[in-house]
Design a protein around this nucleic acid. Structure first.
Lengths: 200, 200, 200, 200
DNA sequence: AATGAATGAGGATTCATTCAT
DNA sequence: CATGAATGAATCCTCATTCAT
């Protein structure tokens, strides 16, 4: 007897709820301190149900890290055009967008920082993050190179500059831990832009 | 009968050995995955001995975070003079030094990143780090303000710039995870300097 | 999906089994020497299951002391009528009953003796015992006072006599440790009665 | 090199101090909860020294139970004369003395109660207590029999009466736990005497 | 599919005891 | 003799996971 559409929908919602709560708990308490029981309670399901949707704790963690990455995070961070006509403006818009994303996804980024910081402990999820970061860097390099060629940015090693830019984004996430940060982040556009070594 | 000097020395060395191994393990595997047994084995002592030198796992972690901070880290990071005659040179030397420290203390910084990233989980060690970061920022602000006044740096909100600089240092620690980084870091002086918004 | 009646029943029986074995072990070996593993083994369950039914060892001990108290012990010991018509007969029946209870509940009383003897170590269970003993004493005083008024007992401080009577019951539990005591206890009715200072 | 008298004396005092503190701690906290370290601290010596005077924890407990027994306790409790001229007076004096001892040696009796209450756990010290109790009972029987023959006490089974008397002494130790009991105990002479079934 | 009882591996910690100084 | 560092057995408890209902 196949499941009805309504049932499928309900199950998908339940899975999503579990995943969201898992992200929050993993981010705030770390992998070991986050128990399946806590996730279940926060999601309003029995802990047995968590195993219905995720094979085991490892898999739950893996999905907590990779699903937001592959849906929103990746899409939003890569949403800039290295070949844009008005490249200076495109760069400024990109910085604005990136900073906004890093504000909004604070919890998820806490999780990302853990995976990167202890990558030997989390090889599978780290691999996904690493691959994305390479892709991100590649696209940044493209943009930087173009901008240099067009005299918008000073000459520099684009690869290094791109990595420094990514490092900066992650770093400020650590430095401005839980301020009501929105207004501070607004100002962070300036150093972020400086990092790219703009012509004056 | 008090302990002989030789014994005291031996104990201090043993304590140091345990602490060093704890730092490595905590950094690489995190708090929970680092068992007292692992630390003991890595240090070549019985697990019971760990409790001779550290009250409990919590305390061991606390000391793993704070002792390097209060000995080398703090001293080295604060070793610059905001009132120096040749301030431009002082700033460049500072950046050079800071970057070198962040290279050399990779493992320790992995630990720092964890504490900051999950500060609600580690309130006591975080407090120490936070206090130091405030002190560090204060001194940076002083230097930046002086440099702006003397026309070495462009005008900017010194507080924000200082925090961005610290964020950058932490962030590149995450981005350049385990490269043989020395030669890359050499180049990182440039973006680090740009971040401070130098006059051209 | 709620548990079936059969399951609930099975669980109640398991809990009871654990509690009974815990009482025996605590009584014979004391609190610390009674390990959760021993209780589990004696009950035929895994040690993990003990924690399914009792929060921790402390709670298990607490319930081992208080549950028999509140079910059989309390009820049986208080089952006499201080206002009975034929008070002399009522007193003799009471003594008979009390002594029989103290015979039958030997193991439980071993446990009670420990809690009283080391009451600073077991404040919560002791509180329960102490409250019951006050209630018991109160009712005894009532009976003794009535009996004195009706000329069945000689004058004496009822409060003291009541406590002496309770002390006697506990004391013989210690003195006649593990005899096949039934026939001896039969004879103990005489001194128990004398303690109440009967008119001759 | 033989020890000087002064040294020997100092050592004896140290041993005594350790034993006294051990009695207190064993009585109040029980066997397992009393650690060698606690005893050492209370005695003002290093825990290593405890092992200089007592082979191990078991032996320390054994001596804590038996030494007071064989010095003061035994002597004082047996200090009555079953063949005394004025036997009624002798009995009353005996009761008075016994009760006084049970007041004064409260802590030690807490320990005794533990050993009796968990005698399977403490076979060696229990053996000593049991032997003494037999001796005590024997002497009591003698006195009771004589008193009955002389018409001071009513007829009863002397053996049972003697045990009831001992039980009573132990029992009130449990019932009147930590009152400022002296004045209450004074009054306890009456029921204690009644227990022996005196002629009126 | 959902529930939660049962299990036992694993880990922190305590503490008696040994033994070098 | 006195001291206390070192050791590891033993214990409580947590928690992922399995599986019967």
């Amino acid at each position: 007897m196949p499941l009805s559409d309504k049932q499928i929908k309900a199950m998908e919602q339940k899975r999503e709820k579990i995943l969201q709560q898992a992200i929050i708990l993993f981010a705030e308490q770390g992998y070991e301190s986050t128990t399946i029981a806590k996730v279940a309670k926060a999601s309003g399901v029995s802990f047995g149900s968590v195993f219905t949707y995720f094979e085991n704790k490892d898999q739950l963690f893996y999905h907590a890290v990779t699903e937001p990455l592959n849906t929103v995070f990746k899409v939003d961070l890569l949403d800039f055009d290295p070949e844009a006509e008005d490249l200076l403006n495109e760069i400024k818009n990109m910085i604005d967008k990136h900073i906004r994303i890093f504000i909004e996804m604070r919890t998820y980024l806490q999780l990302v920082v853990q995976v990167i910081g202890q990558h030997t402990k989390f090889p599978e999820p780290f691999k996904e993050l690493d691959e994305f970061s390479l892709e991100f860097i590649q696209k940044l390099i493209l943009m930087i190179t173009n901008a240099q060629r067009r005299g918008i940015l000073e000459e520099s090693e684009a690869d290094l500059t791109a990595k420094a830019y990514l490092g900066f984004l992650l770093g400020i996430r650590l430095t401005f831990t839980d301020y009501a940060v929105s207004y501070i982040w607004e100002k962070l556009k300036i150093p972020a832009f400086q990092l790219l070594y703009p012509k004056r």
